[in-house]
Every structure is written in C-alpha cells, then in structure tokens.
C-alpha cells in the first residue's frame, strides 16, 4: 500500500499550503459540530442534572432509554431530520434542508443523549456529596441543579468532548440532510466520503489525518483546561 505514504504527503501539503478549499471545509466542520455541541450542552446538561438529582417512578426506564439513544445510528437520525425538514415534511417551510442549520440539528440530536447521559452520572455522584450541605443552606431543587452544573463544569467538559467526537466524526446524518454541497454543506467527513468514492484514496486518507489532527488539538486543549482546574481541586 503506497497509499499511506501518499496520504501523509497529501495531509501535510493540504495543511501546509493552507489550501483555501480545505480551510473552508475545516471551518464548516468546526462551525457545525461546535454549534451542535453548544446546543446539546444547553439541553443535555440541565436534562442530565435534573435526572441526576431526581428520584421518580420510571426513572430507571428513562435512564435505559437515554443510554440506548447514545447509540442512535446517524443514518436513522439523518433520515428522521430529512423527513421533518423536507419540503414534503412538517418543517419544510423553514427551508433548512441542505443548509448547515439542518446539519446542526441532526448532530444535536445525536449528541444530546451523550451529553445528558454522561452529565447525569457526573451530577449524580456530586449530588451524593452536596445534597445535605445544599439543603441545609436552604437551596431548592433548581438552585441545586444550577450549583451542581457549575461546580461540575470541568468534569462536564469531558461529556461535551465525547459529544464533539461523535458529531465531528459522523457522516451518515450530515450527508443526508446537508447533501454534501460544495461550498455550502461539505464538511470533513462528507468530503472524505466523496474522495473515497472518486477513488482518490490517498487524498481521502489525508483529509482523515487532518480531521484526526483537529480532534487531537481540541482534546488536548480541553484536557489542559481540566488539568488546570484539577490543580485547584475544582475538577
């Protein structure tokens, strides 16, 4: 396989040359996945926190469902979002299909269960420690959720990282709802799929390396932040 050598060559040539087409694709990938993780955090973190501090009938079933949803196949999510956003679907008038907005929606649906499930575990552990202390201070349920979310913020970054990994790496959903339109909805993964289908395996692998590099940089940055927090016993 001479493809590996060529792939590294392609990857460095693309990165080193700041190839504008590649930069556009990288930026769109980041914009879509980071926004999806943001939205997922806004929904998933409070949801996970509420589940973490609540005891109610049927909670176990909800947790099973949530953990199951972590494994939602992206293609299925893509199809569901397509059917909603299609002009023949209920949300057709929003004209979101084949836009980055549609990709953000699809990725958010994939990431919310991950963020919520991991946040639930983190918050539940911290709640066991904080519960009596906060109650004696007269903190109500919502105040407790907010306090736990804030105090667990560095641990919750890990949940968001896991969500980001899922979002930036999936291809099935964004291909269907984004359409892989050049300059509009082409992201790293759909570009890799396209180059693979053109038989440009080295270029596809090169793009894969760029994606990997991107993920490494983001992970390292977040882990660095966590390590800083750990030094002040905040994590």
């Amino acid at each position: 396989m001479q493809n590996f050598g060529a792939a590294f060559g392609d990857a460095f040539r693309l990165l080193g040359g700041f190839d504008p087409a590649l930069m556009e694709i990288i930026l769109l990938s980041l914009r879509v996945s980071v926004t999806a993780v943001f939205i997922s955090a806004l929904i998933g973190l409070p949801l996970g926190a509420i589940l973490g501090v609540s005891r109610f009938r049927g909670r176990a079933a909800v947790l099973v469902l949530l953990n199951t949803l972590m494994g939602l196949p992206p293609v299925v999510v893509g199809l569901l979002v397509y059917l909603m956003l299609s002009n023949a679907g209920p949300l057709g008038p929003l004209a979101l299909l084949y836009t980055p907005g549609a990709m953000i929606i699809a990725q958010s649906i994939l990431v919310i269960p991950i963020v919520a499930a991991l946040a639930r575990q983190t918050i539940e552990d911290m709640h066991a420690e904080y519960d009596e202390q906060l109650r004696i201070l007269g903190v109500g349920r919502w105040g407790m959720v907010a306090t736990l979310l804030w105090d667990a913020r560095y641990s919750l970054l890990t949940a968001m990282l896991a969500g980001f990994g899922r979002a930036v790496a999936e291809v099935g959903a964004v291909l269907i709802v984004g359409g892989n339109i050049n300059h509009v909805t082409r992201v790293m993964t759909t570009a890799i799929a396209l180059e693979t289908s053109k038989g440009n395996l080295a270029l596809a692998l090169g793009l894969g390396l760029v994606l990997l590099l991107l993920a490494i940089v983001i992970n390292a940055a977040v882990m660095g932040l966590r390590a800083t927090a750990a030094r002040s016993a905040h994590a």
Partner: peptide, 8 residues
C-alpha cells in the same frame, strides 16, 4: 458536618 462539604 464532621467532614466539611465545600463547593469547588
């Protein structure tokens, strides 16, 4: 408490 619970 015997073992203080301090916020982060």
């Amino acid at each position: 408490f015997q073992k203080p619970v301090l916020l982060r």
